[in-house]
Design a protein around this nucleic acid. Sequence first.
DNA 1: GTGGTCTAGACCACT
DNA 2: GTGGTCTAGACCACC
Lengths: 123, 123, 123, 123
Amino acid sequence: MNILLNNTSMVPIYEQVSEQIKSAVVSGELKAGEALPSVRSLAGELKISALTVKKAYDYLESQGILVTVHGKGSYVSETNTELIAEARRQDVEKLFADAIEKAKTCGMSNEDIKGVIDILLED
Amino acid sequence: MNILLNNTSMVPIYEQVSEQIKSAVVSGELKAGEALPSVRSLAGELKISALTVKKAYDYLESQGILVTVHGKGSYVSETNTELIAEARRQDVEKLFADAIEKAKTCGMSNEDIKGVIDILLED
Amino acid sequence: MNILLNNTSMVPIYEQVSEQIKSAVVSGELKAGEALPSVRSLAGELKISALTVKKAYDYLESQGILVTVHGKGSYVSETNTELIAEARRQDVEKLFADAIEKAKTCGMSNEDIKGVIDILLED
Amino acid sequence: MNILLNNTSMVPIYEQVSEQIKSAVVSGELKAGEALPSVRSLAGELKISALTVKKAYDYLESQGILVTVHGKGSYVSETNTELIAEARRQDVEKLFADAIEKAKTCGMSNEDIKGVIDILLED
DNA sequence: GTGGTCTAGACCACT
DNA sequence: GTGGTCTAGACCACC
């Protein structure tokens, strides 16, 4: 697990953790059935509170991405990772929808928006 | 002033207020030199605390969008609104950049992204 | 009377008015016994409330710089202008004392301060 | 934290607080990365409202002097304190420039001003 | 009437 | 426990 945290960011720590684990699952870096680090070891590694890691794991479990076995540990769920990928695509779609809405309140036309996208995709 | 508030949203009320005033200035709905509603009257109209409106006005003043004259009221700043519009365009660009970054972590290609944009722009 | 006002400044209007009249008296631009513009005419000229001009005149009267004759108008007091000049010099001295105090909290030495003064006096 | 408040002064309390913390940072009394007292504890210590302390911290954060981590506390920013010291030196310079301007409207010569400075520096 | 400041206490999210 | 936000009401200075 290679997780990078940004303390000063407005994004909560637990969300940064769960988001990066989610990415690892979708990308295949973490495979179905694979064990995750224990709450306490990950907390020690990232130098954050075990409660915060627990909150990230709880969230991922509520999303069906993890399963936790009492007394053993947490494992990547066997559910189709395609479902997770689909959920993330909807997240992304919402991000774009929000950006487009704000762009329109600035008076940008559809063509302006496509222009911005083209420029950003070149990087 | 036609301001819509969403109490259940995680976005602070003072930010919703300042953001919508900003939009009104950029769009030209509020012109340079024009008076804004007094802190108390807007608070009454929106049924929120005067302190919350004040916080929104303070933020806009720190951004150079408003000027406040003690004992008289608050007015749209005479500064070039084009500068404000440019700042907002950069905000929008950052929103798109963030969305694209997240899209790529989901494995979406440039073509996928353009497809999503096209669909969203049709609405 | 040639008075310049700055609406956006933190300095109250009435203080800007009284301060500039004080300067005119000390500099000799306004001589002892000379009549000042009426409250209403000065208010009209400066496009401010008559109450604000009245407050400025009241302040100057409390300082002994003006005398107001009911039903006639306001006049520069016959008191020795040297007394007024002395009062202003004490104001100035306090300004320098405050500046020096703040300079010291920044770690500036006496030599540093003299250097700054020399540079500013050259302009 | 040794902060002295003057309730009768016209200077707002939140400004007195932020100014004194700024001084402590510039003088090195508070070092980069060091934790500040919590909003509530400082409020209790100074016997003022937590909201007033918060306003002071917010101002210092907007100046880049503090960083605040949600749920943890506020810390002196790691940015070069030399930049802050430079900003304060400019503040001081403006104070002296204002004092000199007023001195000149009182008819004081450059020599007069230097004389006043010399006397004040001896204390 | 206006804005500027402050209070005392509340609820929520994060660690 | 921490900060983040909001309320309802108060007092003051200014116009």
